[in-house]
Design a protein around this nucleic acid. Structure first.
Lengths: 214, 214
DNA sequence: AAAATATTTCAACATTTGTTTAATTATTAG
DNA sequence: CTAATAATTAAACAAATGTTGAAATATTTT
C-alpha cells in the first residue's frame, strides 16, 4: 500500500512531464493541474506564478544531481593525489551522474533532462537555476582539467568545456530525429552506449589542446 | 533608396527574431504582426496557420545553407581524390558555412540559428524541416568520414556525429550563461575563436575511434 | 479604359490564458 | 472538544489567443 502523494508533488510531476514535451510557454496551468487531477487554483496557491512552478521543477532534482556530481569530482581528485586526476576520470565524473540518471532514473528524470536541454539553449528561462547549480560545478570541473593540463590556455579549455556541454545536452534531449538517423545502426535508447563513447571522444578533444603532450 | 520590403518578408523577419527569443509557443501572431507593422490578418492570409509561419521561417534560410554545405563537402572530397578527404577538412566543410553565417550573416542569421538550436532539441516542432534538409547532409557527412576511417564501426561514428551536432548547436544558441561563465577569459561573441577550436576538438574526438591509426 | 485578381483593413468570434477572490472543507495545535 | 491554520473548491476576472468574414483598397491583366 503506497502512501498518497502530496498535491505539491503531483503538480510538479505533471508539470515536469508537460514542460519536457512542449516547453514553458507551450503548457498551460490548466493542462498541468488537469494532468495532476487537481484544482487549477492550487497551482497558484502552492507555488505562486507560473514561472515559480517551473523553477520548482528544476530545483527539485538539481540539488541531488549537483551533490552527486561534486562528490564524484572530489573523489576522483582525492584518489589521484598528489598527482592531478586523469583526464578521462574527470570527464567521467562530470558526466556519469547525468547519464546514469537519464538511463536508470525513470520517466521523471528523463523529462527533467529534456527540460535541461531546452533551457540550456534558452537564456530567458533557466538563467537562474543553471548559473546557481551548474556553473559552480563547471568551474570546479575546468579547474580540475587545468591541473591536469597546466600548460594549456584558459581560453582553449573554456571552449572545450563548451563543446562537452553541447554534446551532453543534445544527448539528453532524446530527439526522435536521432533514432531516425541511426535507423539500423544502433538503438539510441541504449544510453550505456553513449557513456562508452562520450568519455573517449571528449577526452581526445581536450588532449588536442594539451601543449605539454603535443 | 531602398525598395520597400514585401509583406511576406516583413512577417518572416519579425517572426524569426521573436521565435529566436521566446520559442514557438512563446510568441503570438499579434506580436509578430505588430513588430512587422502589419495587420494581424495578413499572417493567416499569406501563410495559413501559425505552424506554417514557423516552417516558412525555417525553409527560407535552410535552402541556401544546405546548398553551401553540400558544395563544400563535395569540393573537399573531389580535391582529395582518389584519396579519402582529410578528417579535419570534412569537419570544416560541415561546420564552416554555419559558423560563417552565424558570425558574419547579420542579425537575421543569428536569430535563425538560435531557432535551430531550439528545435534541434525539440522533436515536435522541427521534425519535418530538420529531417528534410539536415539529415541528408548528415548522412553524406558520415559517409565521407567512413571513407577516411574505413575500419571504424558505424555505431561509433554515429555517436561522434551526434556529439559534433550537440557542440555546434550549443555554440549557436548564444546563451548569456556562456559569456558569464567565461567572464574575463574570452569574448564569446568572437565566433572566429570557435572555429579555430571546434575543428581540432572534433577531429581529435573522431580519431579516437580510428582503429587503423590506434 | 474596364475587368479581374491580389492585397489590406477592421471587426468580430469563440477559446484559452494566468490569476484572484471568497466560501468551504481538512488538518493541526492548544 | 475548540480554536486556529492549512488546503481545497468553484466561480469569476480581464486580457490575450488563433483564426475568419466581408468590405475596401491596390495592383495587374485584358
Amino acid at each position: 500500500m503506497t502512501i498518497k502523494k502530496k498535491t505539491k508533488d503531483l503538480i510538479l510531476d505533471a508539470a515536469e512531464e508537460l514542460f519536457a514535451i512542449r516547453g514553458f510557454y507551450g503548457v498551460s496551468i490548466r493542462q498541468i493541474t488537469s494532468k495532476a487531477e487537481v484544482d487549477p487554483a492550487l497551482a497558484s496557491y502552492h507555488f505562486g506564478k507560473k514561472k515559480d512552478i517551473f523553477e520548482a521543477v528544476m530545483l527539485r532534482r538539481a540539488e541531488v544531481l549537483n551533490r552527486e556530481r561534486i562528490q564524484m569530482l572530489d573523489d576522483c581528485i582525492r584518489r589521484a593525489k598528489p598527482n592531478p586526476a586523469p583526464l578521462n576520470e574527470i570527464i567521467d565524473a562530470f558526466t556519469h551522474a547525468l547519464l546514469n540518471r537519464s538511463l536508470k532514473g525513470g520517466d521523471g528524470w528523463r523529462s527533467y533532462f529534456a527540460i535541461i536541454a531546452q533551457i540550456n539553449n534558452h537564456p530567458e528561462l533557466g538563467g537562474v537555476i543553471m548559473s546557481q547549480y551548474f556553473d559552480p560545478l563547471a568551474k570546479k570541473f575546468i579547474a580540475a582539467i587545468q591541473a591536469n593540463m597546466p600548460d594549456s590556455q584558459d581560453e582553449d579549455l573554456f571552449w572545450c568545456y563548451h563543446f562537452l556541454s553541447g554534446a551532453l545536452t543534445l544527448t539528453f534531449s532524446g530527439t526522435e530525429r536521432i533514432s531516425k538517423l541511426s535507423a539500423g545502426v544502433c538503438s539510441s535508447s541504449d544510453l550505456d552506449a553513449v557513456h562508452e563513447r562520450l568519455v573517449p571522444f571528449i577526452t581526445a578533444g581536450f588532449k588536442a589542446f594539451d601543449k605539454q603532450r603535443n
